[in-house]
Every structure is written in structure tokens, then in C-alpha cells.
Amino acid sequence: MTPTHEDVAAAAAAWVWVPDNARRIRGEGWQPLRFPDWFEHPLELVSLDPDRDVAALVDDALVAARAEAVPGVVEQVVCWARLGAADAVADALLARGGVLDETLDVMALDLAGPPPDLGQPPSAEVELRWTVDVATARDSFAVGAEVFGGSTPSLPEVEAYVARAGDDLAAGAGGAVVAYLGDRPVASAGLTVVDGVARLWGGAVVASERGRGLYRTLLAERLVYALAHDARMALVKGRVETSGPILRRVGFVPHGQERSYAVPLTAPPGPSGAAGAPGARA
């Protein structure tokens, strides 16, 4: 059955990634996270409860984020305006000094329908490897850091990831795949299969190798895996400038956007700039 907009919205809302080594900051109605320092954005506000007053929730979350910030090191928190509540959340973040950081197209593909036209298959010089060993996993993290920013995790963190990756891949839960030209890693992408939905994430191609079909090659590999493990829908949150246009061309249907805002932590929360407190209203 073709996914409805409501199906896609529900799947998008359920998709909030929390890595094992992130620390949840306790709160009511919001979920700030403290990521490891090698992430591009160590502090993120990943979700809000749409049933509570948005302005008050944002103020609560910013108070908690300011308490977690390392002076001189972490000076902003990245806050997400998710599908379905994007306008109200965006207004509250902009009123508190937020600046648009990233815009993602939320797109879906019915995996029960005709297969997408992904163009020519990859040339023989492209090799794909799943991240089930330390060397390949480190290459995947390195490509991601080059494209998205941040740095790479420590060797013990990579080893801990690899210890789970093989079992997850075999069990149909997903994983990450790296594209190589010779011995050089040039692209990486991942997926996670949850409740029949293949969540496609982390599609990255190094700048020098864009335009040769590597993103589509990794997309095809992930869709083959998703179909082999009974996924009914592929869901992606693609950057509007890069992956979004490719995904539209191969048949993914847009269902709206999610946007992130970088909100400074150097001033107390609240649109007036006055000292804020948990639960303060805008």
C-alpha cells in the first residue's frame, strides 16, 4: 500500500537518532542531547512535545543547554524544527537569536512500487564495503567528518561500533556502506530498518568525486538491502542543496521539510534577552 502523508509524518516523527554514547539531558517535553566532542554540534535539541507551549519548552531547553555548555568551547545549541511543528518552533528559535543552519527535505519511496531508475550501474572501479571491520568503519567516519564537519571518534569507540555492526547487518537492522576508488574511500551512507521503514542517513560524497553517480550507487545498495529485509517504505531527510534533488529525480516523494537553527548560548534565553528561567513564557 502506498504510504500516505500521515504514514510518512509518523515515521519521520519516530526517527530521532540518539547514539549510544550521547547523554540525554533530563527534561519535560523536550529532549536535549550532549553528543561526544567529536560531533560537529556537541549540543542538540532533537525533539519537542507539540502538545505543550512551544515558547516555554524552548526556554526550558535553552536553560538546560546553557548548563551543559563548556565556556569558550560550546557556544551554541542546534535546535530542530521537525515536520508538522516546524513553523511554530522556528518562530520561537528565531526570536531567541537562532540562525537557520540546515534544511532537510523529508522524502519517502514506496518499496512495494516499481523500482526507481538509478541510472547506470557503478563502474568496475567502484568497490562497496560494509562497515563490519575497523578499517572500513574508520573510513566511513572520516568521509562523514570531511563532508559534514566535526572530527572522527577514537579507536575504542570505533571498535565498539564494529562489535555491533556485523550482528546488526546480519539481523536486518541495517548498517553503513563505503564506496572506494582503488584504496581511497570517497563516499559513505547508512540505513536503519525499523518497523518496516528503511531510514536512509549519512549519504556523503567527498567534493572531488561528486557528479559521477556515487550517491546513487550507495542509494541502490541500501535499497537492495532494505527490500531483502522486508522494508515497505524508504524514508530520507536529505539536504535540499545536494541529495534532495537526486532523490526527487529517482522517485522519492517530498512530504515537507525539517530545519535546524543554531541558537547562541552566550545570552540568557528569551526573546527580550532578559534572564530566563525554566518554564518562562515568551
Results as ranks from 00 to 15, higher is better:
residue 2 T to A: 11
residue 3 P to I: 00
residue 12 A to V: 05
residue 12 A to E: 11
residue 15 W to F: 14
residue 18 V to P: 04
residue 23 R to Q: 14
residue 25 I to C: 00
residue 25 I to S: 00
residue 28 E to H: 04
residue 35 F to S: 13
residue 36 P to S: 13
residue 37 D to S: 15
residue 44 E to M: 13
residue 45 L to C: 12
residue 61 A to Q: 03
residue 62 L to K: 04
residue 63 V to M: 11
residue 63 V to Y: 03
residue 63 V to I: 13
residue 63 V to T: 02
residue 64 A to R: 08
residue 66 R to V: 02
residue 67 A to Y: 00
residue 68 E to F: 00
residue 68 E to W: 00
residue 75 E to G: 15
residue 77 V to Y: 07
residue 87 D to C: 11
residue 93 L to Y: 12
residue 98 G to L: 08
residue 99 V to T: 14
residue 106 V to D: 01
residue 106 V to A: 04
residue 110 D to N: 02
residue 112 A to H: 14
residue 117 D to V: 10
residue 125 E to V: 03
residue 129 R to K: 08
residue 131 T to W: 01
residue 133 D to V: 07
residue 135 A to K: 15
residue 151 S to Q: 04
residue 162 V to C: 04
residue 165 A to K: 04
residue 170 A to Y: 07
residue 174 G to A: 02
residue 175 G to P: 06
residue 185 P to D: 09
residue 188 S to V: 01
residue 193 V to P: 11
residue 214 L to R: 10
residue 215 Y to P: 02
residue 224 V to Q: 08
residue 235 L to P: 01
residue 237 K to Y: 13
residue 241 E to S: 12
residue 242 T to D: 09
residue 242 T to F: 08
residue 246 I to G: 02
residue 251 G to P: 00
residue 252 F to V: 01
residue 255 H to R: 04
residue 260 S to T: 09
residue 261 Y to C: 00
residue 270 G to K: 08
residue 273 G to S: 00
residue 273 G to L: 02
residue 276 G to E: 09
